[in-house]
């Protein structure tokens, strides 16, 4: 019996080889990645394309018949948004928020990474402490900073009153006044984002070749000159990676803004994603919300492409 089985197996094996060999060598890799591609198409591509379709309809959640494409109305949502002052205001607020937060975060992270690279005692502890803000969910960070800046019972006003800088009646409305509302959100966002940026830059600093610095020292370069002409240029790829990642992350600003000011008051801190949420989720205008999402995502893609080009340029220069 055993012998027969063995014979049967021996007979089958060459057949399998023949079957595989019939597959075109060029097509074989595609066959392997087909399941993954299928899943991606179903999970990512289909919803994206569907939301693109929805953006050309007047669809509202509780009006199923409104999910109806007509050529005459196809661009209505986009026209509405381009003529919508609130959309432009939220875009401007997002750009300001992004520019200030990313640049300040970068400068602070750069400084922190330089300091951390020079620490000789307790380095592990400091790096662990640095990562603490990353452990908090953005919604918790928003709640914490909302309490810090609460005009009535907040930590900041109470501190300023206790040291005599403010009077009881002169409480500062941090989350309301211009530009304090935006500044408080930026502070919270920087606090949360600095660790990631610092870790990326620190990795870059620690990977720089020591020979270059030794040569500079022999030539009598000062500390600032070494930073300006060696460290900073050599860190460029790391900087672009950090800036790209953080820009995309910060541009999606939602949780912190939603919790701290909810885009208000009077739209003073309205960002793209808080406005999209208001349109799509609260007002259930899925068509309009999808259109705005597509405009926003398109802008993000352009932004990312720009940063990646800069990254490639920096690597070529190196």
């Amino acid at each position: 019996m055993i012998g027969r089985r063995k014979n049967a197996d021996d007979g089958a094996a060459p057949k399998r080889v023949i079957q595989f060999s019939r597959i075109d060598a060029g097509a074989f890799p595609f066959l392997l990645i087909f399941p993954a591609v299928l899943v991606i198409l179903l999970v990512i591509a289909f919803p994206l394309l569907y939301s693109l379709y929805v953006s050309f309809t007047p669809y509202e959640l509780l009006k199923p018949n409104s999910l109806n494409f007509t050529a005459a109305r196809a661009l209505r949502n986009y026209e509405k948004l381009l003529n919508d002052d609130i959309f432009w205001r939220s875009l401007w607020n997002t750009i300001v928020f992004l520019a200030v937060t990313v640049n300040l975060s970068y400068l602070l992270s750069l400084a922190l990474s330089q300091l951390l690279a020079r620490v000789t005692f307790g380095q592990s502890l400091l790096r662990t402490l640095l990562m603490v803000p990353m452990m908090f969910a953005p919604i918790l960070v928003g709640m914490q900073f909302r309490w810090f800046f609460n005009a009535n019972v907040g930590l900041v006003n109470n501190f300023l009153i206790s040291v005599g800088i403010l009077q009881e009646q002169g409480q500062i409305a941090w989350l309301v006044d211009v530009p304090l509302g935006m500044i408080t959100i930026i502070i919270a966002s920087i606090w949360m984002n600095i660790p990631v940026m610092t870790i990326i830059l620190l990795a870059g600093v620690l990977s720089l070749p020591s020979e270059t610095f030794e040569a500079a020292e022999v030539d009598g370069a000062s500390g600032w000159q070494k930073f300006r002409f060696i460290t900073f240029p050599l860190l460029a790829p790391f900087s672009y990676i950090a800036l790209t990642i953080m820009s995309l992350d910060i541009a999606r600003a939602f949780d912190i803004v939603r919790i701290m000011t909810d885009g208000g008051p009077a739209r003073r801190t309205e960002m793209l994603w808080t406005y999209i949420t208001r349109l799509a989720i609260e007002d259930t205008k899925f068509g309009l919300g999808s259109a705005m999402s597509w405009i926003t995502v398109s802008l993000s893609v352009l932004f990312t492409l720009y940063f990646f080009r800069q990254l490639v340029k920096a690597r070529i220069v190196q």
């Binding site: 005009a151 409480q171 409305a173 989350l175 309301v176 000011t261 208000g264 008051p265 009077a266």
Partner: peptide, 8 residues
Amino acid sequence: VIPSDTTS
């Protein structure tokens, strides 16, 4: 008459 943070 009303708080400075009324709108929040």
